[in-house]
C-alpha cells in the first residue's frame, strides 16, 4: 500500500465523521424518546384536529397573523359556530398557558426557534 499511513488516517477521519450521531449521542446520553407535552387542562379540542395542528400550526399562525395585522380580520369561526379571536397571546396561550411545557418541548427537541417572540412578549416563568 502506497502512502498507507495517510490513506488509513483519511479513512478513519471519514468513519469518525460519518458516525458522529452515534458517538455524539452516546457522549451526551441523549434520550431517544420523543418529549411528552403537558396538554392544557380543561380544554378538550383545539381549533383544528391534533394531527393537523401538529403538522401545520406554524402555517395557521402565519395566516392568522397576516389576516389580523394586514387585513384586520381578527375573528375566526369554527365549523360548529364557535368564534375565536385570531391572537397568539389571547387565544392560543389562554389554553396552552405553559410555553415551557408545551411549545418549547418540541421546538427544543427539533432545534426550531420560531420568531413569535421577536414581537410578542415571551411568557416568563412558564406562565403567561
Amino acid at each position: 500500500m502506497y502512502d498507507g499511513g495517510k490513506i488509513i488516517t483519511g479513512l478513519l477521519v471519514f468513519l469518525i465523521l460519518v458516525t458522529v450521531p452515534v458517538w455524539f449521542n452516546a457522549a451526551t446520553h441523549a434520550q431517544a424518546r420523543a418529549p411528552q407535552l403537558k396538554l392544557p387542562e380543561g380544554a378538550t379540542a383545539c381549533v383544528e384536529p391534533t394531527a393537523e395542528m401538529r403538522a401545520t400550526h406554524m402555517e395557521l399562525l402565519n395566516r392568522w397573523r397576516n389576516a389580523a395585522v394586514r387585513s384586520d380580520e381578527r375573528f375566526f369561526t369554527m365549523p360548529d359556530g364557535k368564534v375565536y379571536e385570531k391572537s397568539l397571546s389571547l387565544t392560543c396561550l389562554k389554553c396552552h398557558d405553559n410555553k415551557e411545557e408545551f411549545c418549547d418541548r418540541c421546538h427544543n427537541y427539533l432545534a426550531v426557534s420560531p420568531y413569535c417572540w421577536d414581537c410578542h412578549v415571551e411568557p416568563k416563568g412558564g406562565r403567561s
Partner: peptide, 19 residues
Amino acid sequence: TKVDLVAAKELAMGLVTFS
C-alpha cells in the same frame, strides 16, 4: 404534505442510539 417531525426524530434517534 407535512410530516410529524417529532416522530421523525424519534425514529432517527432510535436508529443512531441502537434502540
